[in-house]
Each structure stands twice: as structure tokens, then as C-alpha cells.
């Protein structure tokens, strides 16, 4: 009985490791696809059209402070964005 239990425990651990490996592989493939197809394509199109997502240019201004005119609405605090 003990040996069977031990065998089942090892089998379960092996299966779990295998499942983790499969999950990692799928994640890797998905992330590759998202990065190179999703991020990559959008980024290339944006660069071609001169769109920037970050303020990385160094155009000197009189002040770098950006005024905040709008106050957040109460309902906005219930949103994650």
C-alpha cells in the first residue's frame, strides 16, 4: 500500500512538472507572438507615422511642469484606469 502511495505521489509530481513545462512553453509562445506581432507591428507603424508613446525627446521648454486643470470625478476612483 505504501509503495502504491509513493508511486502515485511521484506520478502526481511528475505530471505537475510536465504540466508546468507545457504551461511555460505555451506562455513563451504567446508572449513571443504578442511581443513581435502585437507590440512590434504597432510600434513600427507608430514610428513610421511619427507617433511617440513616451516623452523621450529632449526639447527644451521654459518649464517641464504640466498643469493639472481637471479634478478627478468621484466615480473615477471606482475604476482601475
Amino acid at each position: 500500500m505504501g509503495m502504491v502511495k509513493e508511486f502515485l505521489k511521484s506520478l502526481r509530481e511528475g505530471m505537475k512538472q510536465f504540466a508546468d513545462m507545457v504551461a511555460d512553453s505555451v506562455n513563451l509562445l504567446l508572449l513571443l507572438a504578442v511581443y513581435f506581432v502585437g507590440i512590434g507591428l504597432v510600434s513600427i507603424v507608430a514610428k513610421l507615422s511619427g507617433k511617440h508613446f513616451l516623452d523621450i525627446g529632449r526639447q527644451s521648454r521654459q518649464s517641464y511642469w504640466q498643469k493639472i486643470e481637471k479634478r478627478p470625478e468621484r466615480n473615477s476612483f471606482y475604476r482601475m484606469f
Partner: peptide, 12 residues
């Protein structure tokens, strides 16, 4: 949104 913007700007 900021993290994604970083990746979009700095790809690859």
C-alpha cells in the same frame, strides 16, 4: 498603459 507604452516606444 505606461508599461505598454514603454514597450511600444522601445521595441525591440
Amino acid at each position: 498603459d505606461r508599461i505598454l507604452s514603454q514597450h511600444l516606444e522601445m521595441f525591440p
